[in-house]
Design a protein around this nucleic acid. Structure first.
Length: 584
RNA sequence: CGGGGAGUAGCACAGCCUGGUAGUGCACCAGCUUUGGGAGCUGGAUGUCGCGGGUUCAAAUCCCGCCUCCCCGACCA
């Protein structure tokens, strides 16, 4: 492509509304995309080339794994979601609309119901299974807060595959096949990623894993063991409990004693006031939760070590809550609980449920709230307190795990990283097929529900994630596999031998299947260099009078500092082989 | 959904407090010069000042209502 004939409206300055996020900023500045609304984007030619490259890799690997591509409607009649209850469960995130007959529809945020409907209408026998169907389509979610450019959109390109098997073992095999395909995809795209254990959330599945792309700007926190292959989203992470020996036990015989802590409510305040470390205190959290939308909230008190944070996802899992939120002070007062001074002993009868983090099994001499304004209790033993609460209390893993914790599987150190969720794979079981009556006859003439799995990749999100992982102050640094062009030829003079040589290189490389952007614009060299860096094309061939007089052109990689002078006659072969090598 | 900020030319912004012919830089067009890391000079074109209403002789500016976008948080199958 000749730059002079292309449509690449680069911006010299940062758009005001995209300064916070590198990929957003660079995609806009590089003329890849344009924002047209919150979380809604146009893909310009360059952006579309990148998107199609990612899509192509995903498609190739899905096909290789035996999945079959289908196309489903984005506009979906509400009946299907009503069958599984997701019409209500999805809540405000679902884009809903009515047709002229006032019937309900939604824009597909994901297509489990639609694909299950397709399968239940056509599959009758175990002989038709297993099958894996996938789609690469625009999906819609009315995000409460779209942000970070392509990373969290309301309209986004998604690959979703859905597997259907005769039993759990089959589903697990399908899951493993997808897992392998995903590894190939993320590697081919050129991403640094980790496969982490994930919370299955409301998908109702059992086995699941996330493919997290490591990036400073990631929204997710993950922990990775430095010694084994344990890795988990912090929402799902557990850690080896701290050994009892690590806690002082000599004072455990002391009797609990109330101390005045007037006005000291937070752990920081209490710890400082009493002159102890936060680890020697216990933090209380109070939450209201319900098991169905619109339930009257039920109160649960949570205790973790003072320096810990409560993992609300783990709490939701433990309580079976469908929704969960911190309780307001007034709601606590109404139940006889004193906000800021909550402790495990002497709790009012209004408190029916208490969960204590397992780490506190060793907390035999700790500081807790006194359930009385202005007082805390020293020398409290959490195990004794839990016993005293009887059936109201139980132990659970509720603390947010982080750096410094020990690996639950090998005891090694855990590191914490930020990640962008690029893919998520689930075994769903019969969650959807049972609700929707997707059945088949097995080889014993028994009617059974199909066992399902689903596997998503955020295709448009990967475009942004790749940038988040690879950029510098000058612009993007695309991996070869998804770069809009493999090489940019920068012609420093716009005429004579320089342009002739540039065109010749362009034509020869193109003939070899190398994708070339020829900067033949009537611009000064500085402008061309700046744009080349901003666009992030992996290789740059610079043709200029100075070096051409000696029969040379310059070759530079976007990720390297050095420039190498190469013979014009050797340039094509050199570039072509390098491109081929990086794509392999 | 709670809190904060912002809407003026393609982009970045000033002007608003204190009402009086809408500005600056970059980009764009023309000419001359320049030509290896976002050139210089001269001239030019470009605006429903987010939308609607109100006050006023007069509104980008003051008042009321609305919309949109961004950031933090909540949320995120």
């Amino acid at each position: 492509m000749r730059y002079s004939r292309s449509f690449i409206p680069t911006l010299r300055e940062d758009p005001a509304e995209a300064r916070k996020n590198p990929s957003h900023r660079l995609l806009l500045r590089g003329g890849y995309v344009r924002q047209i609304g919150a979380g809604i984007y146009e893909f310009l030619p360059l952006g579309l080339r990148v998107l199609k490259k990612v899509e192509g890799i995903v498609r190739a690997e899905m096909d290789r794994a035996g999945a079959l591509e289908v196309m489903m409607p984005a506009l979906v009649p509400a009946d299907l979601f009503k069958e599984t209850g997701r019409w209500d469960l999805f809540g405000s995130t679902l884009f809903r609309l009515k047709d002229q007959k006032r019937n309900d529809y939604h824009l597909g945020p994901t297509h489990e119901e639609v694909i299950t409907d397709m399968v239940r209408a056509t599959v009758r026998s175990y002989r038709q299974l297993p099958i894996n169907l996938y789609q690469i389509q625009w999906k819609y979610r009315d995000e409460a807060r779209p942000r970070a450019g392509l990373l969290r959109c309301r309209e986004f390109l998604m690959k979703d595959a859905y597997s259907f098997d005769v039993d759990e073992a089959g589903a697990l095999a399908s899951y493993r096949t997808m897992r392998e395909a995903y590894i190939r995809i993320f590697k081919r795209v050129g991403l640094d990623f980790r496969i982490v254990a994930a919370d299955s959330g409301a998908m109702g599945g059992s086995t699941s894993a996330e493919f997290q792309i490591l990036a400073e700007t990631g929204e997710d926190a993950i922990v990775v063991c430095t010694q084994c292959d344990y890795a988990a989203n912090v929402e799902a992470a557990t850690a080896k409990p701290v050994e009892a020996a690590a806690v002082t036990v000599e004072a455990s015989t002391q009797r609990p004693k109330e101390v005045a802590t007037p006005g000291k409510k937070t752990i920081e305040e209490v710890a400082e006031f009493l002159g102890v470390d936060a680890t020697k205190t216990v933090k209380a959290g109070a939450f209201l939760y319900g098991k169905a939308p619109g339930d009257a909230g039920q109160l649960v008190l949570v205790f973790v070590r003072g320096d810990r944070r409560i993992n609300e996802v783990a709490l939701a899992r433990e309580t079976g809550a469908q929704w969960l939120r911190p309780a307001e002070d007034e709601e606590l007062t109404a139940r006889g609980v004193v906000a800021g001074y909550i402790g495990p002993q002497g709790l009012p009868a209004g408190v029916e449920k208490v969960l204590v983090d397992r780490e506190l099994t060793s907390a035999v001499d700790t500081i807790v709230g006194a359930n009385k304004a202005g007082f805390h209790v020293k020398h409290m033993s959490m195990p004794l307190a839990v016993n005293a609460l009887g059936e109201r209390a139980s132990w659970a893993d509720l603390r947010a795990v982080g750096k410094g914790d020990l690996c639950p599987s090998c005891g090694g150190g855990l590191e914490e990283y930020k990640g962008i969720e690029g893919g998520h794979i689930f075994v769903l079981g019969t969650h959807y097929t049972a609700k929707m009556g997707a059945k088949f006859l097995d080889d014993k003439s028994q009617e059974k529900h199909i066992v399902m799995g689903c596997y998503g990749i955020g295709v448009s999100r990967l475009v942004a994630a790749a940038i988040e992982q690879r950029y510098d102050e000058s612009g993007i640094r695309w991996p070869m596999a998804i770069a809009p062009y493999h090489v940019i030829i920068t012609a420093l003079q716009n005429d004579g031998a320089v342009m002739e040589t540039a065109v010749k290189l362009y034509e020869e490389l193109t003939a070899l299947g190398v994708e070339v952007l020829l900067d033949d614009r009537d611009e000064r060299p500085g402008v061309k260099f700046k744009d080349a860096d901003l666009l992030g094309v992996p290789l740059r061939l610079t043709v200029g009078k100075k070096t051409l007089d000696q029969g040379k052109v310059e070759l530079k990689a976007r990720t390297e500092k050095d420039v190498s002078l190469v013979d014009v006659s050797a340039a094509v072969e050199l570039v072509a082989s390098r491109v081929k090598a990086e794509l392999a």
